[in-house]
Every structure is written in structure tokens, then in C-alpha cells.
Nucleic acid binder design. Structure first.
Length: 653
RNA sequence: GCCGGCAUAGCUCAGCUGGUAGAGCAGCUGAUUCGUAAUCAGCAGGUCGCCGGUUCGAGUCCGGCUGCCGGCUCCA
């Protein structure tokens, strides 16, 4: 007999080996029984059929349980694989896990799946769901399982099992629903009838085990929820994400373009995009100067020899553009700014009294990225990093990191981002630098994060070979994470370039070099910004803050005067004098997501006023130009101070 | 780079099974002088991404290239 503690605190004595379902179903209504899908045993999700072996805490898990969503999606992946096998028996199954937004399953097929195939598969899944096939777990000795899948002609499962065997596994679990049997750790829902709200979303190629030297499989992505409403909301979110796509908005608002005649991954910043960039840059430079940084400018090319010294030709060559010969000497375009900053450091002897040195540059770099990886502004070949290098003594490291974190969070917040994930990447297998240095630097990063009270995850072994790092990833509207901010300690370059300072003791010491970018790159950050605001930038970032709109040509003179006053006050305004109806002018300004429209009719001319309308659709009482300018400036200031989101766009569109 | 899809006017898109291109918006011209999301009329605009092939004939079929899209891999 074992003791089972139930959710209400009651303790039951049951036979060892009793199934969780048997205990849990006791006293449940018929309705509740139907909704019971899993058991939580000592906090861990288990199948209902799980046999209780020890004293434990046992709770029921019902449909809709948030933590069970992953199980639902995993079971849906199995359901999809079952459907595929029933429709196309010759297809081999690979793996099919639940992922953050849904699930996928990889298949090896002779013919790739067409959209019609996907529709068929989805239909089949619905049929199978209706049958409410029980999903049963089968525990099997590993050799038996290998034989089983060999017999079924499922080589991918065999490969997985053989690896499990090498790792010392003796038995494995299989899950069966109808004719379909899959290797799986589980747990799963009790039957396929519990899978109600799902949708297959896309097909794509994916390498077997993520290895580009292995064969390419067909991956079908899908998602599943406990109820139809949640599914619909999710699909609506995906639609909204499409509407916010920075590539679409970038074109509509004439912010930037990428032209085939120029080259892939190379960004043309159009006037409005360039203006936003200028505002971003001004803010960035001001903040850096405020915080004791000095500004640098460095060239775009350097002698090949420099890249040899830096080690880039050893470990980064495939990302660099080919050398060009100038006066018999080979030059190469920079993929990074660091060696230039070091050259400035090394231009003379440095004393400990000068440290820390904080040098920043909006440095444009070029990296060869494979064509398939390019993505709008998010992944490009030429981009401007908001780079900085800090040279400091080991004793100064903690404080420097804290200040960098502080500044990063401040900047992200001003731009309107409160949500991000923080990762601390530690020493990889291959690395340079002493263990002592690694520990010092890793601890400094850790202490800084803790000092700021920031939650972070450790990415073990994911540091760069030259040092540990903190990465901050911003989430975009599709919930894709984009690495923007990065703080990296570098032990490699100072050594390669023999970077030194003279200490208090008169001896030469190696400074610690910290490499950091707050926004990451202006291109990517701009892309994230566009999607974050759906193009309706806060007032302080808007390329056009106000548009002066006349009703008839009788207001032209006053309109020109208004524009002049606004511009003299540093407000970014323009003028629409066209012979069009007011409604059309409003509509166009609205579609351009201009925060304020200043409507001028005969009334406004008579009392020398403006009638503002916000892009939200609110009309304000007429006021003087000066009053409006004050209002605008006040709002822009508030946005920057509090990082508050300014009035969004009106709902119509 | 790999798998699949796509490429028609500045933009968004039609163009059935091959018979040598069409709409809306934008642009230009004119009329209209209008109060908070599209005034009306006219005009102009395309070697159908590029190269080659099949065919009496190719936007349409086939091959190659370039670019883009969804992913994989890789990264700021």
C-alpha cells in the first residue's frame, strides 16, 4: 500500500501500481471525468494511466490547464503523424515535438506536401479526432523497440533509439493510437477526441537533426489549443503580425527599401526612415556623451594584415567580403569595429589613470550572410552597429557592466520595450583566456544582473570563444526573439593586439575589454520598432509630427505661416495645400500615421488658430500655434521620460 | 547554402486548358473651393524579373540564372 495525498489534503491508501486515473476519477461527476486529461504527480504531468509506485501527491489536470497545453500540442503532433501515415503509408516519420506556439512533425517524403495535401491531412486529423481513439503507453525493452521500428521501416526512429541505447537507456516508451505507434517520452492526452481546436499552418524543409549535411525532411507546422476561441485568437494574432510586418509597413510608409539593382541585404534608407534614424542616432549619441563615452569614427576598410592579427581571417573569413588590391596591398571591408578602436587605444601608451575608457561608434559593417538567412531589416549584409568598447581594469569591471546594463534598460524603455529575455552565456568548449579570467568575467556579468534584480537564463557553453556574454532579446509581434543588446567580455583581442596600460605599480597590465551594443544594429532595431508600433511611431520618433491641412485655398497663406512657426520651434511638420477635399487629406495623413493633423479653415484663419486632430481620430478644440507646439513637446517629453506608448492609430484599417 | 513556393504598370492584384496584356490606387491635365478616413472627367504608363529552349505562335509549357516569401542552418 502507498499513501496518496490529494489536492484537498485528503490522504488515501491505495495498492501500489494503481493507475492515477482510478484514484482521480473517484468522486468526479461524469462531466468532470470527461474533462480529466492528465495527472499531476508530485508536480509533474503524467498520463492518466500512470501507475503509482510510491507515496506521492496527486492532482487532476483538466482540459484547459495551461501547463497541459504543451501536452495537447505534442498529442496533436502525433495525431498529425497518424493522419499522414494513414494517407501516405510510405512516408517515414522523424520527430514531432511541441514548440512555443504549437508543434511540428518532420517527415521524409518522396514528393513534398502540397497545400492540398495539408488540407487532406487536416481533414483526416478531424476524422481521427472524432473517433476518440485511446492513446496508450507501451513500455518496451530498447532492443525490442529497435526491432519493432526496423520492421516498420522507420529508419529515423531506429537511429534515435540507437542513440538512446548508446546513452544507456534500457527501456523506452511507445505510444499507440489506433494503428499508429510512435516512440515518445510522453505524457499524452488519454484519447484523440480531446484534440478539438487545431490548425496546420505551413510546410517547410528542415534538416534531419538540424544538420545541414543530412537529408532535408518536410516539416509541417501547426498549432493547437484547448478551445476554438483561443485558437481563433491565436490565428488573429498571426494575421495582425502580418499586417505589422516591417517590410510591408516600410514600403507603405516609404521608410526604406531593398533594391535588386543594389543587392540583397543592403538597405536604402528613404527620407522618412532616414529621419527616424537621425532621431535615434541623436538620442543615442547624447546619452553616450552624458555617460562618459567618447565618440569615434573609423574607416570601412583596412589592410588584410589587420584582420590576420585580429584573428578574423581564422574564424570569421567566410563572413567577410573578398579582399581588394590597392597599390599592391590587400584590403578588406570590416565585419566588426573592434580592431579600429584598439588601434586608437594603441596609438600611444595608456595609464591606469585614464581607465575606464569608453569609446563608442555607430559603425557600419558588412558581413556575408547566406542568401536564405536575409530577412528585411532584421538580417542584412550591411548594417550599423551601435558599438562601443570599454577598456578597464579588472577592479572596474563590475561597475562598468552595471552601468552598461543600466543604460541598456534605460534606452530600451525609452524606445518603448519593457519585455525582453536575458541570457548569460558561459564558457564554451573551445576558448581562449585563462580560467581565472573567465571566472572573473562571468561572475562580474552575473553580479551585475543580480545587482539590477534582473531575471536571466544561463546558456551554458554558448559564450563566444573569446569571453562570456549577456544577450538581451526583444520579442517582436510574431513572438520571434531578436537579439539586439549584447555585452561581451573579450580576452582575445587585447592579447592579439598586445593592448596594455601602465598600472600604479609602473608595470604593464592587460586591460579588460568589454564589447557592447545596446540596440544591436540600427537596421534591426528599426525593424523591431516598426513592428512594435505598427508604423505609428511615438511622437518623439515620428518623422512627421504634424501635418498642416487646409480646407480651401483661402487658408494657404495662414497655413504657410503655421508651418514656418512650427518648424522654427523644431517641430517636424509638413503641409498639404492640395486641391482635395478635407476628408481625403485626413485619410491620407491618417494612413501615413502622422500623430497630429492641423485643420485650417476660414474660422482658424480668422482667429489665427489651428484645430488639431489626432491620428486616433479625436478632434481637439482650436488653439494657437504656440499652444499646440507646447502640447506636442510636452507629450513627446512624456513619452521619452516614461517610455509610454503614444496614441496609437485609429482602429479603422 | 538547403527544401518548397512566388516574380505581370510606381503600389495591390486579374489574365481559364499557349493565339502577342487588364482593373483599382498612385502620377499627369482639367473641372470642382469643399469642415475631420477616398469629388468628377480625361490622359499617360508594361521588351509580363533576366537568358535560353519547345512551338506556326509563349505572360502562359520546359531548363538555367537573379531576386523575394515560408522554414532549416547561421547570426547584430
Amino acid at each position: 500500500m502507498i499513501k496518496v495525498r490529494l489536492a484537498d489534503g485528503q490522504i488515501l491508501e491505495v495498492d501500489k501500481g494503481t493507475s492515477a486515473a482510478d484514484v482521480l476519477k473517484e468522486g468526479l461527476s461524469k462531466k468532470q471525468k470527461k474533462r480529466l486529461i492528465l495527472a499531476r504527480v508530485d508536480g509533474e504531468l503524467k498520463d492518466l494511466g500512470f501507475r503509482l509506485q510510491n507515496d506521492c501527491k496527486l492532482e487532476p489536470v483538466f482540459l484547459g490547464d495551461e501547463q497541459a497545453q504543451e501536452v495537447l500540442r505534442h498529442s496533436t503532433a502525433h495525431l498529425m503523424a497518424q493522419a499522414v501515415k494513414e494517407l501516405y503509408p510510405e512516408v517515414q516519420v522523424a520527430i514531432g515535438p511541441a514548440i512555443e506556439q504549437g508543434f511540428y512533425y518532420d517527415f521524409n517524403t518522396r514528393e513534398p506536401f502540397s497545400p492540398e495535401d495539408i488540407a487532406k491531412i487536416e481533414k483526416k486529423m478531424k476524422e481521427l479526432s472524432k473517433k476518440a481513439l485511446p492513446i496508450e503507453r507501451i513500455d518496451m525493452p530498447i532492443d525490442e523497440a529497435i526491432a519493432f521500428f526496423e520492421n516498420k521501416k522507420e529508419p529515423y526512429k531506429v537511429e534515435l533509439l540507437e542513440d538512446l541505447k548508446k546513452e544507456g537507456a534500457e527501456t523506452v516508451s511507445l505510444y499507440r493510437q489506433g494503428e499508429f505507434v510512435d516512440l515518445c517520452r510522453g505524457p499524452h492526452l488519454p484519447d484523440t477526441g480531446k484534440i478539438q481546436a487545431f490548425k496546420l499552418l505551413s510546410v517547410a524543409g528542415a534538416f534531419w537533426r538540424g544538420d545541414e549535411n543530412r537529408e532535408m525532411l518536410q516539416r509541417i507546422y501547426g498549432t493547437a489549443f484547448f478551445d476554438k476561441k483561443a485558437l481563433k485568437e491565436h490565428l488573429d494574432r498571426l494575421e495582425e503580425a502580418k499586417r505589422r510586418d516591417h517590410r510591408k509597413i516600410g514600403k507603405e510608409l516609404e521608410l526604406f527599401s531593398i533594391e535588386e539593382s543594389i543587392g540583397p541585404g543592403l538597405i536604402l534608407w528613404h527620407p522618412k526612415g532616414a529621419l527616424v534614424r537621425k532621431i535615434m542616432e541623436d538620442f543615442w549619441r547624447d546619452e553616450h556623451l552624458k555617460r562618459g563615452y567618447s565618440l569615434l569614427f573609423t574607416p570601412h576598410i583596412a589592410k588584410r594584415e589587420l584582420w590576420k592579427t585580429s584573428g578574423h581571417l581564422d574564424f570569421y573569413a567566410e563572413n567577410m567580403y573578398a579582399p581588394m588590391q590597392i597599390d599592391e596591398v590587400e584590403y578588406q571591408i570590416k565585419p566588426m569595429n573592434c580592431p579600429f578602436h584598439i588601434a586608437i587605444y594603441n596609438s600611444r601608451k595608456r595609464s591606469y589613470r585614464e581607465l575606464p575608457l569608453r569609446w563608442c561608434e555607430l559603425g557600419t559593417v558588412y558581413r556575408y550572410e547566406r542568401t536564405g538567412t536575409l530577412h528585411g531589416l532584421m538580417r542584412v549584409r550591411g548594417f550599423t552597429q551601435d558599438d562601443a568598447h570599454i577598456f578597464c581594469t579588472p577592479g572596474q569591471l563590475d561597475q562598468e557592466i552595471i552601468e552598461i546594463l543600466d543604460m541598456t534598460l534605460y534606452m530600451l524603455q525609452v524606445f518603448g520595450f519593457q519585455k525582453y529575455d536575458i541570457y548569460l552565456s558561459t564558457r564554451p568548449d573551445k576558448y581562449v583566456g585563462s580560467d581565472e579570467h573567465w571566472e572573473l568575467a562571468t561572475n562580474a556579468l552575473k553580479r551585475a544582473l543580480e545587482n539590477k534584480g534582473l531575471a536571466y537564463e544561463i546558456d551554458p557553453g554558448e559564450g563566444v570563444f573569446y569571453g562570456p556574454k549577456i544577450d538581451i532579446k526583444i520579442k517582436d509581434c510574431l513572438d520571434r526573439s531578436w537579439q539586439c543588446s549584447t555585452i561581451q567580455v573579450d580576452f582575445n583581442l587585447p592579447e592579439r593586439f598586445d593592448v596594455k596600460y601602465t598600472g600604479e605599480d609602473g608595470q604593464e597590465h592587460a586591460p579588460i575589454m568589454v564589447h557592447r551594443a545596446l540596440l544591436g544594429s540600427l537596421e534591426r532595431f528599426f525593424g523591431v520598432l516598426i513592428e512594435h508600433y505598427a508604423g505609428a511611431f511615438p511622437i518623439w520618433l515620428s518623422p512627421i509630427q504634424a501635418r498642416v491641412i487646409t480646407i480651401t485655398d483661402r487658408q494657404d497663406e495662414w497655413a504657410k505661416k503655421v508651418l514656418e512657426i512650427l518648424r522654427s520651434k523644431g517641430i517636424r511638420a509638413d503641409l498639404d495645400l492640395r486641391n482635395e477635399k478635407l476628408g481625403k487629406k485626413i485619410r491620407e495623413a491618417q494612413l501615413e500615421k502622422i500623430p497630429y493633423m492641423l485643420v485650417l479653415g476660414d474660422k482658424e484663419v480668422a482667429d489665427q488658430s489651428v484645430s488639431p486632430r489626432t491620428r486616433r481620430g479625436e478632434t481637439l478644440d482650436a488653439m494657437s500655434v504656440e499652444e499646440f507646439a507646447e502640447l506636442l513637446e510636452k507629450q513627446a517629453m512624456q513619452e521619452k521620460m516614461g517610455g509610454v506608448t503614444s496614441p496609437g492609430n485609429s482602429k479603422q484599417e
